[in-house]
Design a protein around this nucleic acid. Structure first.
Lengths: 143, 143
DNA sequence: TCTTTTATTGAGACGGTTTATCAATTTCAA
DNA sequence: TTGAAATTGATAAACCGTCTCAATAAAAGA
C-alpha cells in the first residue's frame, strides 16, 4: 500500500508506453526517491542497503535515469556527482548556486515562470519542464 | 602581439600575487580561450594540438582552473563534462528544447534576466552566469 | 651574464563516478 | 503455465579530471 499513488501511475504509464516492466526494484526505488527532495545514486544505494542488501548500484543508476525519462526526476550535475531532483516534491524549484563554496539556495518565482511561458508560446512551444540555475557568489564568498 | 591586452594583464597580476610564472603555454591557452564563449578542456586540447602538438591535457586543465581563480573563467558542469565560460564574453543566450524532435531555439529575454538579478540580490548573491533551459514540444511535435 | 631557486610542464598513473556487458532471473501476455 | 522479452546484480570498462614526478623553463640574485 504505497502512498505515492499518483507518481506510481506516471511511472506505470511510462513503462507501458515503452514496453518496459514494473519490477519490485523500481517500486522500491521510486518509493524511496519520492521521500527525498534530491539525492545521489550513491546515497540511495546506502539508504536502501538495509531494505534490500542485494540491490545493485547499477540498478539504482538505471532506475533514476528511467525516472528522468518518465518526467519524475531531473538530473543535475554538480561537482563530481549527479544529483537527481524530485520534480513532484515541492512542485518545481530553481537553484542559486555559489561557485565559491558550493552552497545551493532553492527558490521559486512565479513571474519568471510566467515569462517563460510567454517566450515558449511565442515560439510555438508547450513547456513540460524547465531548468534554471543561477551561478555566482554568496555574500560570505564575495568577502 | 596579442589582442587580449586587458585579460593578459589580469592574468599577470594574478600570477604576480601568487608567485606563479608567466609561461608560453599560459599565454597560448589564454589567447585561445578568449576567442570562445565557452569551451571544454578536451575541445581546447584538440584545437591547440595543431599549434603545439606537445601541449598536455593536464596543462589545459590546470590552466583553465587557474583562469577561474584569476576571475577570467568560470567552470560549469554541463552533462558529464565541465564547461569553462569566458567571463568577458557577454552574448548569453537561453534555450528552448523540443523533447520530441530535439530542435533547439535560442532566445534572450531581458525581463527574465532582470528578475533573476532580483532573486539573486534578495539572497545576497552576485550572479556571474546562468543557465536556463525550457523543455517541451514544438507545434509540429505536439500533434 | 651565469647561477640558483622555484614553478611548470608533459606523460602517464590514478581515483571516483557512471555506463556497458552478460548470464541468470523475473515479468507479463498469451 | 509457458515462453519471449526485459531486468537484474556483479563486475569490467569507460570516462573525466587530478596527481605524481623527473625534466625543463622562468624569474631572481650575484
Amino acid at each position: 500500500m504505497s502512498k505515492h499513488v499518483k507518481e506510481m501511475g506516471v511511472l506505470k504509464e511510462h513503462l507501458g508506453k515503452h514496453q518496459l516492466k514494473f519490477t519490485r526494484q523500481r517500486e522500491l526505488i521510486l518509493d524511496a526517491f519520492l521521500k527525498q527532495e534530491h539525492i545521489t545514486a550513491e546515497e540511495m544505494y546506502h539508504q536502501l542497503a538495509r531494505k534490500d542488501p542485494h540491490l545493485g548500484l547499477a540498478t539504482i543508476y538505471r532506475t533514476l535515469n528511467l525516472f528522468c525519462e518518465a518526467g519524475l526526476a531531473q538530473a543535475r550535475h554538480f561537482g563530481t556527482q549527479t544529483q537527481y531532483d524530485n520534480i513532484s516534491h515541492k512542485g518545481h524549484h530553481d537553484h542559486l548556486i555559489c561557485t565559491g563554496c558550493g552552497k545551493i539556495v532553492e527558490f521559486e518565482n512565479c513571474d519568471i515562470e510566467r515569462l517563460q511561458e510567454e517566450v515558449a508560446s511565442r515560439n510555438g512551444f508547450t513547456i513540460h519542464t524547465h531548468r534554471l540555475e543561477l551561478y555566482g557568489l554568496c555574500s560570505p564568498c564575495r568577502r
